[in-house]
């Protein structure tokens, strides 16, 4: 049996989601190859070769792959699948964009956002915003799976797989990259951070979000998250959104500030190890899952907390 894992990377660096996906693939079993499709992505390919348990890294170079457009990645992956029994992609926006195209071309049903591998055909995945955990068995000849990173920890150790260059289709493709606006930050990445500080609608403006949430996050060495309401209102950028339809995180410490705790928000953070909630409403639903609840005005509590840490 052999599994092809799609690497998540930024050409010069490999994203942690790749190693987590490899861990899920190892639970599935068989030989594991990692596909790095990119442009000037040799360093990402070299980093993938060091993930423990990888047989080899397939490195495809091409300008069309510089931004992982789904049309190009699909054209690369589908022919490769004749040599594999499964395609595992991280449930990142890249993986979610590509994997269903591959599944449809292979005429197989994808299993989305798995949180557990039970055996080579059986997986667990949350549905209904994490209010139910579904166990599904796939009888498909080839499995196409996306993996929720928060549910798998990257393995310790270091591997030494070979990197093999492979030919890549050059297009033309029907989609083209135009531009991107990526958030630049020295803070840890939200999806894999050990600590996360999130702000909600109560912050009431982008200025206050920055003034109250960021210093606390920096004091804790934490990534910054937000509720949908805070993002919709423009207090925080879209990539901060934690929840059913944003990012799913499971840090050691999650601090929810001025967030009520709607089911869609809980779906993205309720597997955190320790949850702290700061809210002025002592009946806020977030308190039903918080380990430590501090009832009061965030505009008083947060500066005090930040200064005392």
């Amino acid at each position: 049996m052999a599994v092809l894992v799609l690497a998540e990377h930024s050409n010069n660096a490999l994203n942690d989601a790749t190693a987590r996906t490899v861990v899920a693939a190892r639970a599935f079993g068989g030989d594991i190859d990692v596909l790095v499709a990119g442009h000037n992505a040799r360093s990402a390919a070299d980093a993938a070769a060091k993930i423990p348990g990888v047989r080899k890294v397939l490195h495809a170079e091409g300008e069309a792959f510089s931004h992982a457009l789904a049309e190009a990645v699909e054209a690369l992956v589908v022919p490769l699948m004749s040599g594999y029994d499964a395609f595992f992609a991280p449930a990142t926006t890249t993986g979610k964009n590509v994997a269903p195209r591959v599944a449809a071309k292979l005429d197989v049903m994808q299993v989305s956002e798995i949180t557990k591998v039970i055996d080579a055909s059986t997986f667990e995945r949350p549905v209904y915003a994490g209010n139910a955990i579904m166990t599904v068995k796939s009888g498909e000849a080839k499995k196409v799976v996306t993996v929720r990173g928060a549910a798998f920890q990257a393995a310790a150790g270091s591997g030494a797989a070979v990197v093999e260059s492979i030919a890549a289709p050059s297009g033309p493709f029907k989609a083209a990259f135009v531009s991107e606006e990526l958030q630049k930050s020295d803070r840890p990445e939200l999806a894999s951070a050990k600590r996360v500080v999130s702000g909600g609608r109560a912050l009431a403006s982008a200025e206050q979000f920055n003034q109250y949430i960021l210093p606390l996050a920096d004091k804790l060495g934490a990534a910054v998250g937000a509720s949908r309401a805070a993002v919709d209102a423009g207090y925080a950028p879209n990539d901060f959104q934690v929840g059913q339809t944003g990012k799913v995180v499971a840090p050691d410490l999650y601090v929810a500030i001025g967030i009520s705790g709607a089911i869609q928000h809980l779906a993205g953070m309720k597997d955190s190890k320790v949850i702290v909630a700061i809210n002025k409403d002592d009946e806020a639903p977030i308190f039903q899952i918080a380990d430590y609840a501090l009832v009061g005005d965030l505009f008083k509590i947060v500066p005090e907390l930040t200064s005392k840490l």
Partner: peptide, 23 residues
């Protein structure tokens, strides 16, 4: 359906913790 639903279960319940008095 191509996927067989083996079972659907409640997620692990998370208990409410404690209220803390101050910072």
């Amino acid at each position: 359906p191509r996927l067989q639903v083996v079972k659907v279960a409640e997620p692990k319940k998370r208990e409410a913790g404690e209220k803390v008095a101050d910072v």
